[in-house]
């Protein structure tokens, strides 16, 4: 069971590394969107500190969305998705691998980059730590839920826009608890409650999403 997950992760990471432009452009998108906000709302540190959690989290959400349409599309086009579906083990395991690999190349870099961008918004150190922690905890759920949307819209016209329409409403709880954790830390209330709820969401999403995605992929492959 772990063997197949590891094999898929290994394959997707190898492919992502041979096509670094995708990872880098999603990261740049994140950086640019976050940096645009101070230009839009003005440089007052108080206002920026208040906006920072929401801005960083929304930008992370959008940056994740960018890479989702290709999660299954490439494999679908060249026929490897069929081969994965025909392997003698449940497709959900392979999808679990793909979700992890997607997180490793999209969510993880975002989380590692976020504290640097948080400095632009004058966030205190403890808030920066919580920001990184909340992104580390929450982005796997984004990859998981996103995989469902990517599988449902596989091969459809205008799939990218449709994908955001389907997935963004489902991202709301992650956004609320993720940004809420940072917010609470800035306000001096402590973000532990938010973080544990975020962890619960991520576990639920990672348990449930690959199987829902696998079901959607089977529908798309019919």
């Amino acid at each position: 069971m772990l063997k197949i997950i590891a094999a898929v992760i290994g394959r997707d990471l190898k492919l992502a590394l041979r096509r670094q432009a995708d990872i880098v452009s999603a990261l740049f998108f994140f950086i640019i969107v976050v940096s645009l906000f101070p230009l839009g709302v003005g440089p007052e540190p108080d206002l920026l500190r208040k906006l920072a959690p929401g801005v960083l989290w929304v930008a992370a959400l959008l940056a994740t969305m960018l890479s989702l349409p290709r999660l299954f599309a490439d494999d679908h086009r060249d026929g490897t998705l069929e081969q994965l579906a025909l392997a003698p083990h449940p497709l959900g395991l392979a999808v679990t691998g793909k979700v992890f690999a997607h997180w490793l190349v999209s969510g993880l870099p975002l989380a590692l980059l976020a504290p640097v961008l948080g400095l632009q918004f004058d966030l205190p150190t403890d808030a920066l730590l919580v920001l990184t922690g909340s992104l580390l905890l929450g982005t796997p759920a984004l990859s998981g839920i996103g995989a469902i949307g990517a599988a449902l819209t596989l091969g459809l016209r205008g799939g990218g826009i449709l994908l955001s329409l389907l997935v963004l409403p489902l991202y709301i709880p992650v956004l609320i608890f993720g940004a809420g954790a940072v917010d609470a830390t800035v306000a001096g209330l402590g973000g532990e409650g938010h973080l544990s709820l975020l962890a619960a969401l991520t576990f639920a999403a990672l348990g449930f999403a690959p199987w829902a995605s696998a079901a959607a992929l089977k529908i798309a492959l019919e």
Binding site: K3, I4, A7, V8, R11, K14, L15, R18, R19, R77, D78, G79, T80, E82, Q83, L84, L86, A87, P88, H89, A94
Partner: peptide
């Protein structure tokens, strides 16, 4: 469809498809 990855070499493709097919 050939079910091979353009970015990978023939050898990698062959080994990977065997691994994924268990």
């Amino acid at each position: 469809h050939n079910a091979i990855k353009e970015e990978l070499t023939p050898l990698e493709n062959l080994l990977l498809s065997a691994r994924l097919a268990d």
